[in-house]
């Protein structure tokens, strides 16, 4: 089990991580969801012993990353947010290097990376700098896995990767989880949250909720309306000034609207929009997804 107890970390005037406490079970696929600057990377670096918390304690399978950093570093497979392999070395040379540095060989743990590595093996003599985003990510994951870590720590692995590769990547994580590896992943993409066993919603260094994604959505009890209008900006301004408005925000091509009243009807909203001379296509009640939950949670706090 991985435990965070009241972790604080500041950089000069920024309180990057502000009182984080949570537990991650062994064998879990756990996601930290939050926008850029939420403190995810800082939290990861404290977990993998690269940073020391100002306050609080971390226990990683019973090890203390501050005092027992050598042991901790051996059981972690870490993939930093930035692609951090060597651009001028080929795929094979990169993998070989990390295998040797971690005191193992490609052959010994090939079964672990086989599924992933097979896809990039045809290009194994190509320099890593000339790979596509998705291939770089597969290589980085192979390198992080090569020493058979107990914990796989992935910091925004899918940033800058196309949609197809992202989906493939999450399928790979599911397979790795089945092999018993604990996976902790951070992402700014809300749609990826649903693929985790449990997620922590994080913003401004604070954790707003920790639960399975389905539970987070279920806790969202207020009626949520999707409004399709002709002029998003004008309608947004108008709805914000309405006395009953709890929150309204653009969501893709539509607006998502929350009302302060629990028994509000779509017709009321349509009437208000008409009274403001705004043209709309339709107003409908929808099921919230994890992003709506995240916005709602941060809205209440903020």
């Amino acid at each position: 089990m991985i435990e965070f107890k009241n972790i604080h970390k500041s950089f000069e005037d920024v309180h990057a991580v502000d009182g984080v406490s949570l537990n991650i079970e062994e064998g879990e696929l756990f996601g930290f969801i939050g926008p850029d600057g939420a403190g995810k990377t800082t939290l990861f670096r404290m977990l993998n012993s690269l940073l020391i918390p100002d306050e609080g304690e971390i226990s990683l399978f019973g090890l203390d990353p501050v005092k027992e950093y050598k042991k901790v570093r051996q059981i972690i497979g870490y993939m930093p947010g930035k692609f951090s392999l060597y651009y001028d070395l080929s795929i094979e040379e990169n993998l070989q290097f990390f295998a040797t540095v971690f005191g193992t060989t490609i052959e010994a743990n090939y079964h672990l990376i086989e599924d992933i590595y097979k896809q990039i093996e045809p290009f194994k003599n190509r320099p890593a700098g000339k790979l596509s985003g998705g291939m770089k990510q597969k290589l980085a994951l192979s390198c992080a896995l090569i020493h058979k870590p107990r914990l796989l720590l992935l910091d925004e692995p899918t940033t800058g990767v196309d949609a197809v590769s992202r989906r493939e990547f999450w399928e790979m994580l599911q397979k790795l989880k089945e092999k018993g590896i604990t996976i902790v992943v951070s992402t700014p993409y809300m749609d990826e949250a649903g693929l985790c066993d449990r997620v922590a919603l994080m913003q401004n260094g604070k954790i707003h909720a920790v639960a399975p994604p389905s539970e987070i959505v279920a806790q969202f009890s207020d009626p949520l309306y999707s409004i399709k209008v002709e002029n998003n900006y004008k309608s947004l301004q108008a709805l914000r000034q309405w006395e009953h408005c709890e929150n309204v925000y653009p969501f893709g091509e539509t607006l998502h609207y929350l009302d302060k009243r629990n028994d509000v009807d779509g017709k009321d909203i349509e009437a208000y929009l008409s009274s403001q001379q705004l043209v709309f296509d339709h107003v409908e009640l929808i099921q919230p997804d994890i992003e709506d939950c995240f916005i709602a949670l941060t809205h209440k706090v903020g």
């Binding site: 012993s49 570093r73 870490y78 930093p80 947010g81 951090s84 392999l85 540095v101 005191g103």
Partner: peptide
Amino acid sequence: EFGSMEVLLISPL
């Protein structure tokens, strides 16, 4: 600069 130091640091080197 390329971030590989981060990986080298957490390696057993």
